[in-house]
Design a protein around this nucleic acid. Structure first.
Length: 753
DNA sequence: CCCCTGAGGAAATTCG
DNA sequence: CGAATTTCCTCA
């Protein structure tokens, strides 16, 4: 029996449609399904007599042991919106009314449908005529398409002519291929290929049923913090660009292939079609190879199926992922959640009140030897479990919730009281994901020990472990997001403030009273200046102190535990969230510094790296030696012994350049790209080199237009030296570093020459 | 068919 | 000109 590959709702017929393959043919299973939302029984009684209600409702059904009523009505989006508005005017909160018919079905009926393991994946890449510009993608004619699908062969179709006939032939041929697949994967497809493909088909008069196909923007997987390639430490600092060629260069060790620039595509297509085909195919091959090596689509499949959803990049959104779990859990336990605020109100843009987050201690600035890092494993999820924090277990603030009873209630650090008699939805979901994660983590470790690290089983076990970690960690964030249905400021702050109290008033206080110096603490970690023996003893003491605290507030002890994370030979703290340490293992751990940031330039990172390397490893670092390292780099800059890659700074343009209040230099460079009709997307990283100042603002050229001229003083004084200086200031607080920060003047230099 | 959070440093730009 | 605001990216 083959599994389902895609699903959608056929509105006119009122059917859930699930597609699967049989004997090489795509089949559709139709399941009649009426859409509904919920009301509590009380609210139903309040509105059932009203005129609008009787007009809009089709039928009702009591469920959840009389707690809720299912309201069946038109599933048309506008009708749904109208119904919700009427109800809200009457002070009623419709429950889960934003849940679409397909999701409703997958939540209540097809709670664990069988998904097809072997999805037919088609990687593809379009080349278009760029002349209408990037603001008019739908008018860019498709000149060539390269693809690699079930036959695993990379092919290319190109247009014979740049008119409707040529493009129409191309699309007809390509759609025949598309129809043999379930998932279309393109690099940046969300903003380019998928958009253009759909728009051009429509324009030419081809109307395939896109609902059968799922789309995936491959780039999104590589950008994602858990799946993405920033996840691995060795890839930090190279995230300068998410261009496919650059990713492949870094991850697959490929030689950089200079493709045909987008703005030259039409000309190239006319004069050298063979070359267009070649480069177009290269990109598809790279995607195929990346998936072979990294298996991110495999991981995404696991995440999707875990939450009972078809494969799509939406499960990367923590809100979507948790929604799937929570709706299903609620459905099984008779708990229904509010309608998502934003779902029907696009213009809703009011500012929401922020709540307090984590505690970050001011570090003891400078260099320290023999340091232990202790941390809580999954602090927030465990606080949620210990205090049964969940929207439906919340009783209210202590002052508004009289009758606090130690036997049945607990109180979080923000004074909010929770019912302890029944496990809440959030604690239950968090517990589930933590248990599953532990299970798969153990399995992965066993497989690794058995030498099966390269098997499919191992990869799956690790992916399942990661997927559960992602979901569990996101639970707290969901409580704090006003856009989501279970938003509850009190719950979110209960988590953060209780964690603050545990870290600051239980752990840090305990260390201080034990005579151990606390150097730094951020959220769920503490850095202690102590010996191994002291650290081990402290962990024991901490467990008792935490349990005592939790018990005193009426919570469940035993979940929150402090562990030894790592031992450092030496740590240097510069500021909150900025430090660097040398682990006993020899690994250097850099946090927050320019060295690992992606928005600086290479010489900036290089100098800081050399300085860090020196001061961490030298028994007793000497200022003079550090000075020499810095002088060497200063000379290289002033003597222009640097190339474009040393100088290129790349920053993201997070929205359209026209909408900035304060347009930094990279935004101005982006605008110039737009003005010249070059490729530009919101979210793109713009590489540039600073050339000087103009109107009191930085002036720069796009890295591609670099001609050897750059602002030497800017690079040394503003860009490269300050990050190094901050490290040196921390290590040598009494040394005067001012002289090095000055511009090198050539007459002074000649004295040494 | 989708917004996970707040805390925080540093630099560029704009404001008063 | 210094203060305030905006922006980006990181830590947790």
């Amino acid at each position: 029996m083959s599994g389902y590959v895609s699903g959608w709702y056929d509105y006119p017929n009122g059917d859930v449609c699930l597609a699967f393959w049989k004997d090489g043919e795509r089949c559709i299973e139709r399941i009649p399904f009426e859409w509904y939302f919920y009301l509590t029984n009380d609210e139903f009684e309040k509105v059932r007599g009203s005129v609008y209600f009787r007009q809009l409702v089709e039928r009702v059904k009591e469920v959840d042991g009389g707690k809720h009523v299912r309201i069946f009505s038109s599933s048309r989006r506008d009708d749904r919106r109208e119904f919700i508005e009427f109800l809200r005017e009457d002070g009623c909160e419709p429950l889960e009314a934003d849940v679409s018919p397909l999701m409703r079905y997958m939540t209540d009926v097809g709670r664990s449908i069988e998904f097809e393991e072997n999805l037919k994946i088609l990687f593809y890449d379009l080349e278009t005529d760029p002349r209408p510009g990037f603001e008019n993608l739908e008018r860019q004619r498709i000149l060539s398409v390269a693809f690699n699908g079930i036959d695993r062969k990379t092919k290319c179709i190109d247009a014979d002519s740049d008119d409707d006939r040529g493009e129409g032939d191309l699309l007809e041929q390509f759609l025949e291929v598309v129809e043999q697949h379930d998932l279309l994967v393109a690099w940046n497809g969300e903003k380019f290929d998928d958009v253009v493909l759909k728009a051009r088909c429509k324009r030419i008069g081809l109307n395939p049923d896109w609902r059968m196909i799922n789309f995936l923007d491959f780039m999104q997987l590589f950008k994602h913090p858990y799946f993405g390639y920033g996840r691995d430490a060795e890839n930090k600092g190279v995230k300068v660009s998410y261009a496919l060629g650059n990713i492949a260069q870094n991850l697959l060790g490929k030689k950089k292939v200079e493709g045909v620039p987008g703005h030259m595509m039409h000309k190239m297509w006319r004069t050298n079609r063979k070359l267009v085909r070649k480069y177009n195919k290269v990109d598809v091959d790279l995607m195929v190879e990346l998936e072979d090596v990294y298996g991110y689509i495999d991981a995404l499949k696991i995440l999707s199926h875990m939450s009972n959803r078809f494969v799509s990049q939406w499960v990367l959104k923590v809100g979507y992922l948790n929604d799937a779990f929570i709706l299903r859990y609620g459905s099984e336990h008779g708990i229904r959640f509010p309608t998502k605020m934003r779902a029907f109100y696009e213009d809703h843009n009011k500012s929401v009140d922020k709540f307090q987050g984590a505690y970050v201690m001011e570090p003891v600035e400078g260099m320290h030897d023999e340091v232990f890092c202790l941390d809580f494993a999954s602090l927030y999820p465990n606080v949620i479990r210990s205090f049964n924090i969940s929207p439906e277990t919340k009783i209210g603030h202590r002052e508004n919730a009289p009758g606090f009873c130690e036997a049945f209630h607990c109180e979080a650090s923000n004074g909010v009281v929770f019912d302890m008699t029944e496990e809440g939805v959030f604690p239950a979901i968090v517990a589930m994901t933590m248990e599953r994660r532990a299970k798969y983590k153990k399995l992965a470790a066993e497989l690794k020990d058995a030498g099966k690290e390269r098997t499919v089983d191992f990869r799956r076990a690790r992916q399942r472990s990661d997927a559960n970690k992602l979901s569990g960690n996101g639970a707290y964030g969901c409580l704090g997001s006003p856009w989501l249905r279970y938003y509850d400021r009190d719950c979110a702050e209960a988590v953060t403030l209780t964690s603050q109290e545990i870290t600051r008033d239980v752990i840090i206080s305990l260390a201080e009273s034990t005579g151990i110096q606390v150097l730094y603490s951020d959220t769920d970690s503490v850095y202690l200046r102590c010996s191994m023996k002291q650290a081990e003893e402290f962990v024991e003491l901490a467990a008792d102190a935490i349990d005592e605290f939790v018990r005193s507030r009426g919570g469940i002890p035993g979940f929150i535990r402090l562990e030894i994370d790592d031992e450092y030979v030496r740590v240097i703290y510069l500021a909150k969230k900025r430090y660097v340490g040398l682990k006993k293992s020899g690994v250097i751990d850099v946090k927050g510094l320019e060295y690992i940031r992606t928005d600086g330039c290479r010489i900036e990172r290089k100098l800081q790296e050399e300085i860090i390397d020196y001061v961490l490893h030298a028994q007793k670092p000497a200022a003079q030696k550090a000075e020499r390292i810095a002088e060497d780099w200063r000379d290289r800059i002033y003597d222009k012994e640097v190339d474009v890659e040393d100088l290129t700074i790349a920053k993201s343009v997070s929205r359209h350049p026209k909408t900035y209040k304060s347009a930094n230099v990279h935004v101005r460079v982006a605008q110039s790209l737009i003005d010249r009709g070059r490729e530009f997307y919101v979210g793109m990283k713009i590489p540039y080199v600073v050339t000087g100042k103009k109107d009191d603002k930085l002036d720069a050229v796009h890295a591609d237009d670099f001609d050897g001229e750059f602002d030497v003083d800017y690079y040394w004084q503003k860009k490269v030296w300050p990050p190094a200086e901050r490290v040196l200031e921390a290590v040598f607080p009494n040394h005067d570093w001012k002289q090095l920060g000055r511009a090198r003047n050539d007459s002074q230099c000649s004295l040494f020459g």
